[in-house]
Every structure is written in structure tokens, then in C-alpha cells.
Amino acid sequence: MRAAISVIAEKGTAGLRMSDIAARAGMSTGHILYHFGKKDRLLLEVLAWSQADLWTRFQQAADQAASPAEKLDLFVRFYLPRHPGDERYALWTQVLTQHHDEAGRQVLTELLDGWDERLEAILREGRDLGQFTDVDLPEFTVRAVAMLSGLSEDVMFGRPRWQHASVHTFALSALERELRPTGQ
């Protein structure tokens, strides 16, 4: 899976060959084809594996967080790409541009919904503890994730506006402004 992510980040999906992944993983192309069948399935499987790994690391960090505000900070950190060549985010962009059958669309929907569910849980906890204002959770989540996705595109593209500013700080500040309880 790691070999596939690195090859996809380097070549994109258009130039991706199963033989490149096999060579990077130290396996035969037949072995890769046996397990995945075709490239589209491989990409979805790698994306699902990558997200499971990311969410495990996020949950471990969130379990150590002292407050919903710290969990929100972690959510933003884990959501945004780290740099323009971020392999995980490159994989997302490559997979999202492919045409998928119903089963593939279902996998992608579940992965995307996973981000929403994690954010809503943080918001609900913060609201219940009185640390966040009472917002419409689904509506706020849609706006927050849309903003983070747009900022992620800026990072992946390498927009110069982020050379001297932190995209993480910008995003977190925007979310916190809306979540700040009245009077604080």
C-alpha cells in the first residue's frame, strides 16, 4: 500500500502502471493484479487503507487531547495536506477524478462521510461542554469541510499566498470564530 501511494504521488493515476507499484513493493505484477484485479480497485483500496491509517493516528492523538478545542486543532492538522506534494492528499485528488461504479462511489462516500462524522463528534462534545456555541452541526460541517478542501487545493497547488502564512492557523481561526460562545 505504501509503495502504491508513493508511485501515485510521483506519477499520478494517468501514468500509473501496476508494474511500477510491483517493482516498488518488491512483488510481481501478477501478484498485484491477483489481489486487486484492476487499477481502479487498487486506487480505492489504497485510499481506504490510507484513510484507516490516518484516522487511527488521529484518534490516538485526539484521545490524548485535553479539550474539544485541541481536538478541533488536530482535526484541521490531519485534514490539511502538509505540503504541496503530500502523498495522501495527492491520492485523494487522483482517485476523486476517476469515474467510479456504484460500489466505488459508495466507498468514496463512506470515506468522505468519515471526516464529517469526526468533525461533528468534536463539535457536539464542545457544545455539550459549553466550550463551543450551539451551531447547526450538519450545516457547519459542510461549510467547514468545504473550506478545508479549498485550502487543501491551495496547498497542493503551491499557492504563493501560503508561503509566509500558516494555512492551519488561518483555517483554525476561521472555525474558532464561529464556534466561540457569545460573550467570549
Score class of each variant (00 low, 15 high):
Ala121Lys: 12
Arg88Glu: 15
Gln184Pro: 05
Ala144Ile: 00
Gly150Asp: 02
Thr182His: 10
Gln184Leu: 14
Ser166Met: 02
Leu54Ala: 13
Tyr79Ser: 00
Ile5His: 07
Arg17Cys: 07
Pro84Cys: 03
Ala61Thr: 12
Trp49Cys: 12
Gln94Tyr: 07
Arg41Leu: 15
Val107Leu: 08
Leu74Gln: 11
Leu96Val: 01
Gln98Met: 15
Ala52Met: 05
Leu112Lys: 04
Gly114Ser: 02
Trp49Arg: 10
Phe36Ser: 08
Gly30Asn: 11
Thr133Ile: 03
Arg88Trp: 11
Thr141Ser: 03
Leu72Arg: 04
Asp20Trp: 10
Glu110Leu: 11
Trp115Ala: 00
Arg118Asp: 01
Leu43Glu: 11
His100Pro: 04
Ala165Tyr: 06
Glu87Tyr: 03
Val135Gly: 03
Gln64Pro: 06
Thr93Ile: 12
Glu178Cys: 09
Ala69Ile: 08
Met18Trp: 08
Leu74Tyr: 10
His31Thr: 15
Asp101Val: 03
Glu70Asn: 11
Thr13Gly: 15
Thr141Arg: 00
Gly150Trp: 01
Thr56Trp: 13
Arg88Ser: 10
Ala121Trp: 07
Gly126His: 05
Ser149Asn: 11
Leu148Phe: 00
Arg177Glu: 14
Gly30Met: 05
Phe78Gln: 02
Ser19His: 14
Glu102Asn: 04
Ala165Gly: 05
Trp162Asp: 02
Ser28Ile: 07
Leu172His: 15
Ser166His: 06
Leu108Asn: 11
Ala171His: 07
Arg118Trp: 01
Ser149Trp: 08
Arg177Trp: 12
Ala121His: 10
His100Thr: 06
Glu178Gln: 14
Val7Ala: 11
Arg82Gln: 13
Leu16Tyr: 03
Gln60Ser: 04
Trp92Pro: 00
Arg2Tyr: 06
Val135Ile: 14
Val107Glu: 06
Glu117Gly: 07
Glu87Asn: 10
Leu54Trp: 09
Glu45Ser: 15
Arg105Phe: 03
Tyr89Lys: 14
Leu43Ile: 11
Val7Glu: 13
Ser67Gln: 06
Asp116Tyr: 00
Val145Phe: 00
Pro81Thr: 07
Asp63Gln: 12
Asp128Leu: 07
Arg82Ala: 14
Met27Cys: 09
Thr169Ser: 15
Arg82Phe: 04
Glu125Val: 07
Ser50Phe: 08
Arg2Trp: 03
